[in-house]
Amino acid sequence: MRWEADDVAAFEIKASLDDESKVELKAEIKVLVAESVNELVNELGLSKRFLTRKEACKLLGVSLPTLNEFAVNGLPIHQISERVSYIDVVELSEWIKSH
């Protein structure tokens, strides 16, 4: 099943976890997201190393403002000129794993 943004917004889980379980859950989520990104890269035939912001948004299933928020939170974006910037697929995958 593939979740859409509207589905996720309407979906809420409440649970109480101890600190160790939270760490384990967070690590598992990171692995699953990274695997999903890698699968999508393969599905979309993205064999290139760098993505435009639009391509990265499509790959991640997020809006441009959300991608910009990721950048504020440390996602490396390589600014080529005032209007041109790229995201390294390897750095994107590593950033996802670390957050």
Rank of each mutant, 00 (worst) to 15 (best):
E55K: 03
L44Q: 12
P65Q: 05
Q79H: 11
A56N: 02
P65C: 04
K30Y: 00
L46K: 07
K26G: 01
L46V: 02
L44A: 03
V31G: 00
E43P: 08
G74C: 08
K26I: 07
L32Q: 13
A27N: 13
E24W: 10
G74D: 06
R83Q: 07
V31H: 09
V37S: 01
C57D: 07
V62N: 06
L32V: 05
L51F: 08
R53T: 14
P76K: 03
N38S: 09
L75Q: 10
S81E: 09
L40I: 04
F50G: 03
K54C: 05
I77L: 04
N68R: 12
L60W: 03
R53C: 14
R49P: 07
V33E: 15
V31K: 14
A27I: 08
R49L: 12
L75P: 11
R49E: 15
L51D: 12
A71G: 05
T52A: 02
P65A: 04
N73A: 05
I29S: 09
E39P: 10
L60E: 03
S81I: 05
N68P: 04
R49K: 15
V62D: 08
V33G: 02
P76I: 02
L32I: 05
L40Y: 00
N38H: 04
L75Y: 09
P65T: 04
L25V: 15
G61A: 06
R83E: 09
E55P: 07
A34E: 11
A56R: 03
E55H: 03
V31M: 06
V62P: 09
